[in-house]
Design a protein around this nucleic acid. Structure first.
Lengths: 343, 343
DNA sequence: TTGAAAGCGCTAACAC
DNA sequence: GTGTTAGCGCTTTCAA
């Protein structure tokens, strides 16, 4: 009975006005009389008219949609970022097309291509690999506004990111200040081309004149307590194990804590552990976790502001802007003064 | 120098063929010669041609995009569901438009309207309120395929959901079997119209001939350990406090655990606690959490399969199908036999 | 095998 | 104030 969907034309036929007038009226143009507008609005209401944004997009060459590409959203900090981005975008009338790369570069490239095809007005991306971003650079040629959510070494990009290197530096320094000298790191990014955290760790060691010892550096790709557990195992099995460990994300830290419980080690008595991200649950871990914290909402807001500025200024190429959020240490119970070896 | 974006017309002009031939060739139609196809593909490649899916959508009346509306994604179980949905959809060539309602009905309605405007081919939704879904019912009139991610009392809808009531029943029964008789619940849904968990709790009590005691029922809206903490406080402050508590989500349970630590209560010695969702971190809580578990990936896959079936069969109205995922109890350390009162 | 023409639902120029 | 026309980039008849 009911026609699938009412179009401007239908309500034009219904009211006797032209499609143009109807279009104008529905957009509350001052050109059309109050009376006709009301008439038209009423008809539209009755026919449950919904403008077809696809058609509108085609003619206006803008979709008011942005593409968001994250590696995954199971890391609660990325979850929060994603949610904050979606909310900030919705507040400004934009929709969010969402894709996860699952840390696979091919997926990431694919997602970007799909977004381009769907004519997104801009892209927000946390790249799998912070160094290999040629595929993202290409977007500039299409004049497609892009904001990176991770710092990228070469520059030349709009960036809103956390100072991961600084965070890692602060974490390591915190341990050093507690007297620790043998400090392990369970890194997550190095293998996939994100060396920031490892760098920060090394920065702090160097500053304190502590030599690098590769037995204290392990790397796991992914995000899960079991990986942290495995990393800890590798660290502790070696000769001269650490007295403190920096887990490059909180999930890893939970695995580390778990390893300690299983092996009867007291945290922080026997060993200190510090995480990264300050996810909500870190306060409720087996030992409340000392960790590196920052505000993902702030980051999301800055990224959205920048992207929408780039889109809406629309003008000639703007000079890339790099903005950073600074992390802090949130001290809880999992780190403590180094105990003198009982020997 | 470079034209913003190459169109079919441009590559037609370039190669001397008509736009139609170019379109056919690029879609690998057998009608066009191998030779011309290669010629055209090469030209397209050179001009970095990307088909405009918006234009395609307009003529084909399908966007290969679906809308996903969740209350929020900070609950890790919804995060996992969201991610699994996005992945399953991408595998089948669909994009995901994403929105969070933040448990606000107005937001939810707004999101749906936006999605309709953007001509999504279908909608997947976890509604804020499982009973008030008139706004979702309206979608049926638009012949827009919808799959609900929560069970809905009236029927008449395609549903893929967890048996929340059964999960709550099992959780409560688990506590009863351990000898508990005064069992508290910290509910999250009742106030917003999702009584399933409270019902399941009451089912189990009734079955065991334990009378309902409203002093043992508290309700918090939201998802966060601090709410669980507050709920626990309310429960324990009253006369005849419980010896076991069912927290309707794991975040609440963490808050409960925290309250117990602060008040020197041993879990499970003094009090048992059980959560709901089995989020990854529940194994790493202060006391590893006994909780209700299920597989969000399975749920996501079923929901996507159903929605795409509805879309692709496209035919006349299909009889609504209700599918359910059954939860199980994962027993860890936070629940134990009821201790006889020392009195 | 390829081309011409029409049209998806809308907005934008320009008449009237 | 309102109507007419053209066109966004594509697919889809229908011819040739």
């Amino acid at each position: 009975m009911s026609p699938p969907r009412a179009r401007l034309k239908d309500i034009a036929a219904m009211t006797g006005f032209s499609t143009n007038t109807v279009s104008l009226a529905l957009r509350k143009s001052p050109l059309v009389t109050e009376d006709t507008r009301q008439l038209i609005e009423k008809a539209a209401e009755e026919m449950s008219y919904r403008p077809n944004e696809i058609a509108k997009s085609l003619v206006q060459r803008q979709t008011r949609t942005i593409g968001l590409v994250l590696t995954n959203i199971v890391n609660p900090i990325l979850t929060q970022t994603a949610q904050a981005i979606e909310t900030a975008l919705a507040d400004r009338g934009y929709s969010t097309l969402f894709a996860t790369s699952t840390n696979d570069r091919e997926h990431e490239i694919k997602a970007i291509e799909v977004f381009q095809g769907r004519q997104v007005d801009g892209i927000l991306i946390y790249p799998t690999n912070h160094s290999q971003i040629d595929h993202i650079k290409k977007l500039r040629k299409f004049h497609l506004p892009v904001v990176l959510l991770a710092s990228e070494p070469d520059g030349g990009f709009d960036v809103v990111s956390l100072k991961e290197r600084l965070g890692a530096y602060k974490a390591t320094r915190h341990l050093i200040e507690l007297g620790h000298k043998r400090i392990g790191i369970i890194d997550s990014g190095y293998r996939v081309g994100n060396p920031e955290k490892l760098q920060g760790y090394l920065d702090a060691l160097a500053e304190a004149n502590i030599g690098r010892d590769d037995r204290l550096i392990v790397s796991e790709s992914g995000y899960s307590p079991v990986l942290g557990h495995a990393g800890m195992e590798a660290l502790m099995i070696a000769a001269e194990p650490p007295t403190a460990v920096f887990a490059s994300n909180d999930a890893f830290a939970f695995g580390v804590l778990d390893w300690c419980i299983q092996h009867g080690l007291d945290v922080p008595g026997d060993i200190s552990v510090i995480g990264f991200d300050n996810i909500e649950f870190s306060a409720y871990a087996a030992t409340p976790l000392t960790t590196v914290s920052y505000d993902p909402k702030l980051l999301a807001q800055m990224a959205v502001d920048r992207l929408l500025f780039l889109i809406e200024s629309g003008g000639p190429e703007t000079e890339p802007l790099m903005q950073h959020v600074e992390p802090e240490i949130t001290v809880r119970k999992s780190t403590g003064q180094r105990r003198e070896p009982s020997k």
